[in-house]
């Protein structure tokens, strides 16, 4: 039982990061019906920018650990949001009226571009965050050692998810985003500036991805230029699992995927864990073709 709970917390921490990245996928998808394959690379960029800011600004000299993290997170989110908005402007906007798949190819091209740009700027070697930023204490619960930071990662993801959910549901801009997601044409007729809505979506989604990148860097320490591809794929899986376009769905999908992986590794086989996760995904989709929380879209008549 102890082992089970330990594995559950392991899975939830990983899942929290998947969820955070999946939120970005889901937001963009919700409005544009576009799978932004470059999203994983925005996550990578967040991780690298975080490292650069951390080592050049010397924030640790005047702020405590959590102050540093908060300031850093805001800066990284801001910068990655700008990259995201620029990406939308350059690579996706010209394709908005064409077939959905054309934008997918553009996204794949952008992904290759970003990944190699990071490699050329920072080099191909692993980069490592300084070790002493976050306290490494563990909490003892039920006779288990759970690192505090794992809980914080999970907590941060949940807080961001709730914040995003409230933003979408309660604010005026959120309403505009929802309207644009349902019908862009009608939204335009109602006086909503759809271009601006899409721009906002492309600011928020990448910002969340960048924050996830920073979290990975701060917690795991090691970052490399190819990591976005793997995380991106996992997060995309998570978004689909929960029902893409649905914000709580991305959260549920992310956490569930993390737990499935941990449990698959623990009780079946480590080497097969990704295959197990995909099998579960396929089974779930066979039973619920639009994911766990996805809406049942009526067939168009």
């Amino acid at each position: 039982m102890e082992l089970f709970i330990q594995q559950l917390t392991n899975g939830l921490a990983v899942g929290g990061i998947y969820a955070l990245i999946a939120l970005g996928y889901t937001m963009v998808y919700g409005v544009l019906k576009l799978i932004n394959f470059a999203h994983g690379d925005l996550f990578t960029i967040g991780a690298y920018l975080g490292l650069t800011l951390l080592t050049t600004l010397g924030l640790t000299n005047y702020l405590g650990p959590f102050g540093v993290v908060i300031v850093l997170a805001l800066m990284v989110m801001g910068l990655v949001a700008i990259v995201g908005a620029a990406l939308e402007r350059v690579a996706y906007r010209p394709l908005r009226t064409s077939h959905r798949l054309s934008a997918v190819v553009s996204a794949l091209g952008a992904s290759i571009f970003f990944q190699n740009a990071v490699m050329l700027i920072y080099g191909a070697r692993y980069k490592v965050y300084p070790h002493d930023i976050l306290p490494r204490t563990a909490i003892h619960v039920f006779g288990l050692d759970i690192p505090l930071i794992r809980l914080l990662i999970l907590l941060t993801s949940i807080v961001m998810m709730i914040g995003l959910y409230l933003f979408i549901q309660r604010t005026k801009i959120g309403t505009a985003i929802r309207a644009a997601a349902i019908d862009q044409g009608a939204a335009k007729l109602m006086g909503i500036n759809v271009d601006r809505v899409i721009m906002i979506v492309f600011l928020i989604g990448p910002a969340l991805g960048g924050a996830a990148g920073l979290m990975v860097g701060l917690y795991y320490g090691q970052i490399n230029f190819t990591m976005g591809w793997l995380y991106g794929l996992k997060a995309f899986t998570a978004a689909i699992l929960g029902g893409i376009g649905n914000i709580p769905g991305a959260m549920v999908g992310g956490l569930l995927l993390g737990v499935i992986e941990a449990m698959g590794a623990a009780y079946i086989s480590i080497a097969w864990k990704d295959a197990i996760a995909f099998c579960v995904l396929i089974l779930i989709l066979i039973v619920r073709p639009t994911g766990l929380l996805g809406e049942r879209v009526a067939e168009k008549i």
Binding site: Q7, N10, A265, A266, A271, D274
Partner: peptide, 20 residues
């Protein structure tokens, strides 16, 4: 005796299993 997936960041599930 098992294999991990390279290029991931979190190996705590594997370590937990190994420790047991």
């Amino acid at each position: 005796y098992d294999a991990l997936t390279p290029k991931e960041n979190d190996y705590s599930a594997i370590l937990t299993k190994m420790k047991a």
